[in-house]
Design a protein around this nucleic acid. Structure first.
Lengths: 228, 228
DNA sequence: GCTTGGTCTATGGTATGCCAGATGCCACGA
DNA sequence: TCGTGGCATCTGGCATACCATAGACCAAGC
């Protein structure tokens, strides 16, 4: 029973085939959406199972999960089709994003520590340089990270989880959006104001700024982004 | 080719076994949560497949879907366990509910027709009589219908869909909550104020009232409801 | 050549059997 | 009596075979 100091590390449980197949499929579909907007929309169970090197059973379970998340649609004896979000659905997702993040901002003014809030400055800077240097806007990773940080500071894991899924989908329209340098610059100003409101613990103002910021994005997408 | 007026109705495509199994399981788990808080938490694939009269394959797919929704947890070679929401998770769900419904109320002040808004009066009345007559509060169907109606009037199908799932889970704590007649009465007052704000197309006030109303429920649950 | 009914094939749905690992029981020994 | 190791069994994961039907293809008849 003596502690021999054998630094035992629990052997990492390899994920199930189902789980790995799910991840691989999700990544594949996402890349398809991003880089290959006009590509093949139909999938075939047997073909996929052969290419992934697993039987149809775990593959089907992975597909069923993707279907419940709305990434694919499975029609009996017809095929499996990759679902492309309509513009209206994208807009709805941004609306929900606005609702969730503005609530998170509200909570953050009450729950977050000063240190946490201060860390937002770095993210603003990262986004600024990213947006200017690489001509990216609302869809850059740096921007997403900024918003995720605010959401995390709300201290509500469910909001974080739901927002993450939304970001995953919304990001798919990155390459279709018209990049506007002006928007990026205005966005940076917005971000700075949001951080200021949070640091001032101004609940109402933080909520409003976050909501309006995201709804501005929504309007921009509505007016200038062509989907489908 | 003559139209013989044979009133043909497309034979309703019976749902797949998987889909029906999913519904049956979900209903079973929900009822268990509501009426039988201390009951068996472990499920068995073979036993269930026998009881439902389907093979393990569609059953497993149904279970996988329930797992991705967080209703059950499947552990390899250990078993399938019904997940009981923690109090903290319930509170988070109510927070998200507040975020979504307040956004919907905001949208409703801009999108809903006068007729739609007027129809809310009936729902308020239904809730009033329900709450008084049957001693129910925030968890009565009449109350849920009132809130769903507001959400629907926001005109954002995604919000409706997400809220519906939240309601499904939150409703499970119905029987564990302490019924307070006072709360029901105050709730009715809140509802009337919300309807008034909506009809006045007062966006900010409608949002605020809806948010505060739901957050009041959250606080009530936090303080007075014992879960687990 | 066009229509029409039959048939073939592709494809998702379902049933079933085997596998590996986690548990728990039980016999055995100190 | 208590601890220990082995073995039976339980249970989810996976592979595979078969089923049913939508759609494509084809051939016969006009």
């Amino acid at each position: 029973m003596a502690d021999l100091q054998l630094k035992i590390v629990p052997i990492t449980e390899g994920l199930s085939l189902k789980a790995r197949t799910y991840e691989a499929l999700k990544a594949a579909i996402t890349n398809l959406n991003i880089y290959d907007p006009g590509a093949e929309l139909k999938l075939d169970e047997r073909d996929l199972s052969e290419r992934f090197g697993v039987s149809r059973t775990p593959l089907r379970e992975a597909l069923a999960q993707l279907e419940s998340e709305g990434l694919v649609r499975i029609v009996a004896r017809r095929g499996i089709f990759i679902v492309r979000k309509t513009k209206s659905e994208i807009l709805d997702m941004i609306t929900v994003w606005a609702a969730l993040e503005s609530m998170a901002a509200r909570l953050a003014t009450k729950e977050a520590t000063d240190e946490e809030l201060a860390s937002l400055h770095d993210l603003v800077d990262q986004f600024s340089s990213d947006a200017v240097a690489r001509n990216l806007g609302e869809y850059s990773d740096a921007n997403i990270r900024f918003h995720q940080a605010i959401i995390a500071m709300g201290g509500c894991p469910l909001i974080s989880k739901m927002a993450e899924e939304l970001f995953f989908h919304v990001r798919a329209i990155r390459n279709r959006s018209i990049v506007e340098q002006d928007r990026a610059k205005r966005s940076i100003v917005d971000h700075k104001e949001i951080v200021a409101a949070l640091e001032a613990r101004d609940t109402e103002r933080a909520e409003r700024l976050v909501r309006e910021h995201t709804l501005k994005l929504r309007e921009h997408v509505e007016r200038f982004v062509e989907i489908d």
